[in-house]
Design a protein around this nucleic acid. Structure first.
Lengths: 193, 193
DNA sequence: GGAATTTATTACCATACATCAATTTTATAA
DNA sequence: TTATAAAATTGATGTATGGTAATAAATTCC
């Protein structure tokens, strides 16, 4: 009963489902192949979708009133990405999401997810645990922003995400670390000594 | 069947439970009255408990290698507090949790929570939604730290938490905003003009 | 209420990072 | 491969916030 579009194997690795459950799951996920530069969400739109990244790299960023970009999240293999604030509360997005590499993703709507929660109770636990991990990651990031210098945060970044570092622009990293690209450049120079 | 210790009414306002469920819930929550200054968690300890705040104010903070405190979260009425990173992954805490006012809280252990999840499925959804809201709050905070000046963050803080502002020390607020108490003092002076 | 302690403010100077502008390097595309 | 655009680096200077130290104000406690 597993179709060639094996969302089950990709996303729900450790869980077992019966045929009808598989049918439901496959009906709510859309597999997409997107090109580098593709925007999946624009600020102001309704953020009614969440994305699972099978391959490639995406980023979620906010553009402030001065036109400056701030990267809130990078999404790589096996991560989920969305404007969560907007997604969870059915509000307009304040973030933009774009592919910074050619990527393969699974897309699910808020309704689709609600359908999963209702019809397949064990999915609830699956997403709760994902959310707990993401929450812990965010808590660590808040702490890093409070306690560490830009250089320390950059070192942490390249150790934690050695793969991301190769595929994203420096100005993406800078906007994630909360510094300018010039400052990042100076940090890199300093570290290369 | 509702005991005088009405945790159900306090925490699970909108949910209905049968007698046996109420029994389970009341068995896993401990209601505590704690004095200002009480530490509920010390860095290095196992963070195996999560707390619901019925009354009062708590804070979760990290002490970095230079001895500086960084407040990651304030907990007020109807909020939950814990070292989530440690709690979710069964690791040693890197945070401390203390009451900064006399408070009344409900305490639940990780095992207790797991018991709830297993025996009362609808609890799963309840906590998932709480977590989604907390997650959104954290996302907003990350963005604020990236995009806003200290003064802007302080203004946001006192507008968002007018009640907290009265009950916490300025150095608690400063350590939450990621600035020194001297800088906060200057910001306050500037705003009072 | 007054002494002791904690917390907040202020002044002066230091520093991390930002801004602006120019230049070099790297990537893209004809 | 060369032309063009995009990205990264560098230098000079500005600014927000930090550090230190002294003082003032507010709490706490006897």
């Amino acid at each position: 009963m597993i179709s060639d579009n094996s969302v089950i194997k990709d996303i729900f690795k450790d869980l077992d489902f019966n045929d009808s459950e598989i049918k439901i799951i496959e009906s709510v996920f859309k597999k997409l192949s997107i090109e580098k530069g593709t925007k999946l969400l624009n600020a102001g739109d309704l953020a009614d979708r969440q994305y699972y990244i099978l391959k490639g790299c995406l980023r979620a960023y906010h553009v402030d009133t001065h036109g400056k970009e701030h990267t809130v999240q990078f999404g790589i293999k096996d991560w989920w990405i969305s404007d969560y604030t907007a997604f969870f509360s059915n509000e307009k997005a304040i973030m933009n999401i774009e592919a910074i590499q050619n990527s393969i993703i699974y897309s699910i709507s808020k309704e689709g997810k609600d359908e999963l929660y209702t019809k397949i109770p064990k999915i609830d636990k699956f997403f709760r645990i994902k959310l707990e991990k993401a929450f812990a990651t965010f808590q660590k990031r808040i702490l890093a922003n409070l306690a560490q210098s830009a250089k320390e945060r950059y070192i942490d970044f390249i150790t934690t995400y050695p793969n991301i570092e190769k595929s994203v622009k420096n100005y993406h990293i800078a906007s994630y670390l909360g510094i300018t690209t010039e400052s990042l450049s100076r940090i890199r120079k300093d570290l290369s000594k």
